[in-house]
Design a protein around this nucleic acid. Structure first.
Length: 608
RNA sequence: GCGCUCUUAGCUCAGCUGGAUAGAGCGACGGCCUUCUAAGCCGUAGGUCGUAGGUUCGAACCCUACAGAGCGUGCCA
């Protein structure tokens, strides 16, 4: 009876293990919710829940709880561990016995805490997809978010394919060809009079603003070197486009690599032309495509066209306006081809499509999602990221791609270092408008939270090393060194290279799993709870995709560690060297920190 | 005009799908090192969470209006 009623209010109930507010070990709003729904006093509902919890195992508790706490922590038979349950401000608070926490820590030590079952779900994660018209600039800085998201989702058991969509079919690529030709002309016609008298074959030339930059000159020189001046009298567009896009993509790939990004799949706009035709027919069959003329005031700036167009009736679906699928010259719009691209994704049978767009495309997200949802009811998440502005002191650095003087992504990264760069980009919500003082994050100093975390990791390594020095036989173990996650790098004095021992051997040497902790101080408990909180935070990322929470978490666990360290400064017996329990605890922390950094795509340094 | 995002400490930002006393770093001030990395720890000062209403047992978070900032508002991509 009670259970069936409880199940109905399932989604309002929350049981939070190791809540960050530190009121208790487990906190729940159950008394408030149940008293309201069952029309009993809060005291009565609290007593009911308490009795229920104490008399049985927590299998009920799990059924009430939306979050899959079962994987987060081994808390079967929770009732055995309940030490104290009380009501405060309408909340149920539970304190658990040390053994409960210890069993959680042991799950970390045996790595089961870090294991996740495969979900059997395919995710297509598209991000960056910048036009191939030039090197990436700092405006693309947030692209590391997509990379980290891929790592997180993979960890959580999804099969993720990362993808980059190349717009190789639009007007901008023609502009690119013109831009290269402009330089090609200068190279081919070194004589100034010749240059002056040369008339371009292409009639549309000069209407657009050309791209500039060294890369344009490089491409022009390459073409001249191969072909000489033959293109002066030929239709160069297709050839120049092809070469330029290819070369620019090589640059972009290098740019991405400089921040640690490597897409698995590259799809071109030109390859999804057929899909676009198919997809539009599907939309037409659903009454969402018609031939007509768009509102005059909505038509292209300063131009009036009278040709009928194919139009997507997105207004029907909630958009502000209907959207053109073809242009006056009959060619498909970018939007139409994008529909084709997404139709292609749908046919490739992904369970979840994720797209990360720049802020300048966020109005686009709406119409795209209407089109995709009309094709098929696929799970689609479009995230837009707000812009990053960089400043140096008070001076804001301007972004201008076509003038050729935009600060490039690679320059920016090389300036401040890949890991720090990634960390600062991954510490903030994608929705927030970021303003980064380039002088500050460049500073290789204490001011940077990045070092705070790395320093904690380094100190842990140092502490474990000191322990291993005291155990000669650890060095004698020769083991397979293939498993990266299991290594403890130990640089020994004077010997060549580094000696490596396995964490599992280290753990054996420490006496294996934790049985009990004699002096379980508050700071140790705090550290333990932070460690055990990790799983809940990571799992929440598949819902909110907010990778930056890892960075925030790292800061917290690092802080907990530094406190422990300082205790050792103040009290000899609190030194790690003198406490196997403390060493095991920081071994847990080490695993968690390393895994977290790994999810961010940042290297964990043992020394620096 | 309209759409999206944002507005939290002097500055840069967190705030866990509404929860109990709003947090961190930097900056300011004051303590703590004869060896486990002071790249650290502890403390002090600093906030009517843009403004005004509403919903709720409960709001920084949801709704409405208003004010500011950024981005968009093409038959560009």
């Amino acid at each position: 009876m009670l259970e069936s009623k409880l199940k109905k209010i399932d989604n309002e109930l929350k049981f939070i293990f190791y809540p960050s507010n530190n009121y208790s070990d487990i906190s729940s709003n159950a008394p408030i919710i149940i008293s309201k729904k069952m029309k009993v006093s809060i005291d009565t509902s609290f007593e009911m829940i308490k009795n229920k919890l104490l008399e049985k195992s927590d299998t009920e508790l799990q059924t009430f709880n939306n979050e899959k706490t079962s994987t987060e922590h081994n808390h079967r038979n929770l009732y055995k561990y309940i030490e104290k349950a009380w009501l405060q401000n309408g909340f149920l608070n539970i304190n658990v016995s040390d053994n409960f926490i210890i069993s959680g820590l042991n799950n970390v030590l045996d790595d089961s805490f870090l294991e996740v079952e495969k979900k059997g779900l395919n995710v297509n994660l598209e991000y960056v997809s910048a036009n191939p018209t030039g090197p990436l600039h700092y405006g693309n800085s947030r692209s590391v978010y997509g990379d980290s998201l891929a790592r997180v989702l993979r960890f959580l058991g999804y099969d993720v394919l990362t993808e980059y969509y190349i717009n190789d079919a639009g007007a901008q690529t023609i502009t690119l060809a013109h831009s290269v030709f402009e330089e090609y002309k200068k190279i081919s016609l070194s004589n100034k009079d010749e240059l002056k008298n040369y008339t371009d074959l292409n009639p549309n030339k000069g209407l657009e603003i050309l791209y500039k930059g060294q890369y344009i000159i490089d491409i022009a020189q390459k073409i001249f070197k191969n072909d000489g001046d033959i293109w002066l009298s030929k239709d160069y567009i297709e050839h120049f486009k092809k070469i330029a896009i290819y070369d620019v993509l090589q640059i972009i790939k290098k740019d991405l690599l400089s921040v640690g990004i490597e897409h698995q799949s590259w799809v071109t706009e030109s390859s999804v032309q057929e899909k676009a035709i198919e997809a539009i027919e599907i939309l037409r069959s659903k009454g969402l495509v018609y031939e007509g003329i768009l509102d005059e005031k909505k038509s292209s700036k300063g131009k009036e066209y009278k040709q009928k167009l194919q139009i997507f009736a997105s207004k029907k679906l909630g958009d502000d306006e209907d959207r053109a699928l073809t242009k006056h010259d009959g060619a498909r719009t970018y939007f139409a081809n994008d529909i084709g691209y997404f139709y292609d994704k749908i046919q490739r049978k992904f369970d979840w499509l994720i797209v990360i767009l720049g802020a300048d495309h966020d109005s686009y997200a709406k119409r795209l999602s209407y089109a995709v949802k009309s094709l098929e009811d696929v799970k689609l998440t479009i995230k837009t990221c707000q812009m990053v502005t960089f400043k140096s002191g008070e001076e804001v650095i301007k972004l201008s791609k076509r003038s050729g003087n935009a600060l490039s992504l690679r320059e920016t990264v090389n300036n401040i270092g890949k890991d720090i760069f990634r960390f600062s980009m991954l510490s903030k919500n994608l929705d927030s408008h970021l303003s980064i003082d380039i002088d500050k994050i460049k500073e290789f100093s204490t001011n940077n939270p990045f070092f705070y975390i790395q320093h904690a990791y380094g100190r842990i390594a140092s502490s474990l090393k000191n322990f291993t020095y005291s155990k000669e036989n650890l060095y004698k173990e020769e083991n397979n060194l293939n498993d990266d996650k299991d290594k403890v790098n130990c640089k020994t004095n004077g010997t060549s290279g580094s000696e490596i021992i396995k964490e599992s051997i280290l753990l054996d040497e420490l006496g294996g799993e934790i049985n009990s902790i004699d002096d379980f101080t508050n700071s140790m408990k705090q550290m333990s709870k932070t460690i055990l909180e990790w799983r809940r935070i990571i799992e929440s990322l598949s819902r909110n995709l907010e990778v930056h929470r890892i960075s925030i978490y790292l800061n917290k666990i690092a802080e907990n560690f530094h406190v422990l360290w300082t205790e050792g400064k103040e009290n000899e017996s609190s030194k790690f060297l003198h406490s196997n329990e403390r060493l095991k605890l920081i071994l847990c922390a080490r695993k968690i920190i390393r895994k977290s950094l790994d999810l961010l795509g940042i290297e964990a340094y043992e020394e620096f």
